Simulated assay, not measured.
Amino acid sequence: MSEPAAPYHISSAVIATLPARTEDVLAVLAGMGNVEVHGHAGGKIVVVIEGTSTGMLGECLSRISLLEGVIAANMVFEHVEMEERQSHDGRSDAT
């Protein structure tokens, strides 16, 4: 018997930084779980945040907004996928 599909949230965000602190912020972001930097220029950083709930994404974005050198951190887009689960016999459920 298989488990029901679970939602998986993916969000993009733009982080505005003090230009002199951008590299410091990038270094912290590189160490954060479920956060991937996709580009940066002119004090702005584009990231993707992934997690199991909207609340998890919001919490991560709040932590980012409190980093020293961050002026603002704003979610731009959120998408929810239904995560495929494995049945007990090893077959995947397509949802």
Rank of each mutant, 00 (worst) to 15 (best):
H88I: 03
H9A: 13
V47I: 15
A20W: 08
N34M: 06
A20T: 11
R63M: 04
A73D: 09
V48K: 07
Q86R: 02
I64S: 00
V48L: 11
E50K: 00
G55K: 13
L61T: 07
V76G: 10
L29V: 10
H79W: 12
H9G: 05
A16F: 07
E3H: 10
N34W: 05
G43P: 02
E50Q: 05
A30S: 09
M75I: 14
V80Y: 02
V46N: 03
L18Q: 12
H88W: 02
L18G: 09
F77T: 14
L66P: 01
G90R: 06
I64M: 03
I71N: 03
V80N: 00
H79T: 14
T52G: 13
V46G: 05
A94Q: 02
E83F: 02
S62G: 02
T52M: 12
G58C: 00
G55S: 13
M32N: 05
G69K: 04
G42H: 10
V47H: 10
M56V: 08
L18T: 10
R21M: 13
V48C: 11
M56W: 01
I10R: 01
N74T: 07
S53H: 00
S12Q: 09
G58L: 00
A20E: 13
S92W: 02
S87G: 15
P19R: 01
R85A: 11
L57N: 09
L57F: 10
G42S: 14
A20V: 12
G43A: 08
R85L: 06
E68V: 03
P7W: 10
